[in-house]
């Protein structure tokens, strides 16, 4: 990124709101910070309009803190709860039409490669289970078939949460929801397996109850996407508003679901991705 974009033009320093001065002086740009540094710098997201106890909000915070180069990252979002938060994020983000996020991300990544041939720009799709698993599955799958160098992160709250509570392909079987009062008739879609079979170099599931692991997964997924091809991360984000538990119990819910194996933590690597990650762990760096 042109570092000038985070420098205030001379003469305007005294009129800039405090928030921007803090972002310039103490923001995450160009500093290679991570989950361990949370609380020590001005974050790219602070206030947001998501519900109390929303695990998606925490997941987004953790994801943003784990980006390997936040100043050179562009988020492509889609319709859903997450899109309400993206507009608050102090990095580049594009809101696509519902479901076409991976097509937009593909075009963007290719355009950036042409426009900035000597720079690495990370294009990261961040969207909900509806945009990725249901409405946008076609563009998602085809971006994976083509092996596009983008990372797709699903904030999986297992429901269309801000439209009244309809079931998505990611809702668990028998889930009784506001707009599915007789319970869902089909099992949760096996998206990590779909991603793996569709050619993703790396696919993983995680919850925000394991922040360090989440940070590692996000970081390595983006690095793999840069070098090898498509990557997919599925983050379980319990929704207290629709699943009717206390906002303070979101993380407990995430832990319990992992513990009782109703939310499975998985990781799939292609042989190239495995070799690449082993190289990183041996000190290859990024």
């Amino acid at each position: 990124m042109n570092k000038g974009i985070i420098e205030i033009s001379p003469g305007f320093e005294d009129v800039m709101p405090r928030e921007y001065i803090d972002l310039v002086n103490d923001g995450p740009y160009g500093r290679k910070l991570g989950i361990d540094d949370l609380g020590t710098f001005k974050e790219a997201i602070e206030e947001h309009p998501l519900c109390a106890g929303c695990a998606l909000a925490l997941a987004l915070r953790l994801v943003l803190a784990s980006l390997p180069a936040i100043e050179d990252t562009i988020i492509v979002g889609s319709t859903g709860c997450s899109s309400l938060a993206f507009s608050q994020v102090a990095i580049h983000n594009i809101h696509s039409l519902f479901g076409n996020q991976n097509a937009v991300a593909t075009g963007l990544k290719r355009a950036l490669q042409i426009r900035f041939p000597n720079k690495t720009k990370d294009v990261v799709v961040m969207a909900g289970d509806g945009a990725i698993g249901d409405i946008g599955l076609e563009t998602v799958m085809h971006s994976w078939f083509r092996g596009e160098n983008i990372t797709t992160i699903m904030f999986d709250n297992e429901i269309y949460a801000n439209t009244g509570g309809q079931e998505s392909c990611m809702s668990p079987k028998r889930a009784v929801l506001y707009m599915a009062p007789t319970g869902k008739k089909f099992p949760k879609a096996a998206m990590p397996e779909v991603a793996h079979a569709a050619g993703c170099a790396y696919a993983a599931t995680i919850t925000p109850a394991s922040p360090k692991r989440l940070g590692k997964i996000v970081n390595q997924a983006i690095l793999i996407a840069r070098e090898i091809g498509s990557t997919y991360i599925q983050i379980y984000c319990p929704c207290p508003t629709n699943f009717k538990f206390k906002p303070s119990e979101s993380l407990k819910m995430a832990k319990d679901r992992v513990k009782d194996e109703t939310y499975l933590i998985k990781e799939y690597f292609s042989p190239e991705a495995r070799e690449f990650v082993e190289g990183l762990e041996k000190g290859g760096g990024n």
Binding site: N2, G4, I5, I6, E7, I8, S9, P10, F12, M16
Partner: peptide, 9 residues
């Protein structure tokens, strides 16, 4: 407002 180029400044 942001010093992204000489012309902007």
């Amino acid at each position: 407002l942001w010093a992204w180029s000489e012309k902007a400044v």
